[in-house]
Design a protein around this nucleic acid. Structure first.
Lengths: 101, 101
DNA sequence: CCGTATCCTGACTGATACTG
DNA sequence: CAGTATCAGTCAGGATACGG
């Protein structure tokens, strides 16, 4: 589908972009990433956490709450990621043409 | 190994960078990409050709010769790719740290 | 020189249902 | 709410050897 992607796993780039405006809860991430099953989303977040791109915070409250936010390292990735996303939107039509022929 | 990559396949980004200075023969690509088996390199090149990033030219000569070069579309990818490569070299140490802990 | 053919492995992705 | 458990399926990636 996508001509290319950023990230060790398929969704890492999108997840990071979803976090660029600040911390998000798991359920908040599921909205823009509705096509991603909870298992896969969790896997992606765990990998991003392990590699130091994302910080996971668990709050001890009556209603359970967990947030994810970008670390400084994760935030430094936004530049390259945006470069790729912009390229994709600029060249989307050409990509479709190449696939059809 | 690499924290993330550009390209539908693992080597696409590197292949494109190897072509940034002009056409290269298959055997020339195998030098910088020595760790890539010929089958996988061929696969990558075929995909890049199909998607319009690379032009493959076969010369009818006594000694067989095939060259690959970037199309204009392929060349337009160099910007985003360089952004990712630069990021990687700048943050390489941090990535290793995260993996070890 | 420029690839294919074959075989193999495991990483990645996924749907669905269930739990603390 | 924030995940895990389970059960699979696909497919990219890789080693090695051979072919036009």
């Amino acid at each position: 589908m996508l001509p290319f992607r950023i990230g060790a796993d398929k969704w890492a780039g999108l997840v990071i972009r979803c976090l660029e405006d600040g911390p998000r809860r798991f359920s908040e991430l599921r909205v823009p990433l509705a096509r991603v099953s909870p298992k896969v989303l969790t896997q992606s977040l765990r990998t991003l956490e392990r590699d130091g791109f994302v910080l996971r915070t668990e709050y001890d409250e009556p209603v359970r709450r967990v947030t994810y936010e970008l670390t400084e390292l994760g935030r430094s990735l936004l530049g390259p990621i945006r470069a790729v996303c912009e390229w994709t939107s600029e060249h989307w039509d050409e990509l479709l043409d190449a696939r059809e022929s």
